[in-house]
């Protein structure tokens, strides 16, 4: 399975960078071995499968799985991402 979650924002170096930092900590706590990367919505690699960020940026990207996160500094905002990725990992194993 693809093991990278992308976080997008407008500038690609503030909200997404902070969000990535928070999501990484949560993944580590859940023992999920996944990578988190971040970038501007318009720089998102074509191969990206899992993308999180504010809805208005998600609307601009084309990826199979998109998760709306409107408050990037709130760890709880990533619950849906974690839950989904957990089930993906379990399914894969």
């Amino acid at each position: 399975m693809d093991k990278t979650i992308f976080i997008v924002c407008e500038s690609g170096f503030v909200a997404s960078a902070m969000g990535a930092s928070i999501l990484r900590k949560r993944l580590a706590a859940e023992c999920l071995d996944l990578e988190v990367r971040f970038c501007r919505a318009k720089d998102l690699p074509e191969a990206a499968v899992y993308v999180a960020g504010p809805q208005k940026f998600l609307d601009q990207v084309d990826a199979p799985y998109r998760f709306a996160v409107e408050t990037p500094l709130d760890a709880k905002a990533y619950d849906a991402v974690i839950k989904f990725m957990e089930s993906k990992v379990n399914e894969h194993e």
């Binding site: 690609g12 170096f13 503030v14 909200a15 960078a17 902070m18 990535a20 930092s21």
Partner: peptide, 14 residues
């Protein structure tokens, strides 16, 4: 430059 600025963003909420 983007990496460095991202690092500062991360540091602010570290």
């Amino acid at each position: 430059a983007l990496m460095l600025l991202s690092a500062i963003s991360g540091a602010i909420i570290e």
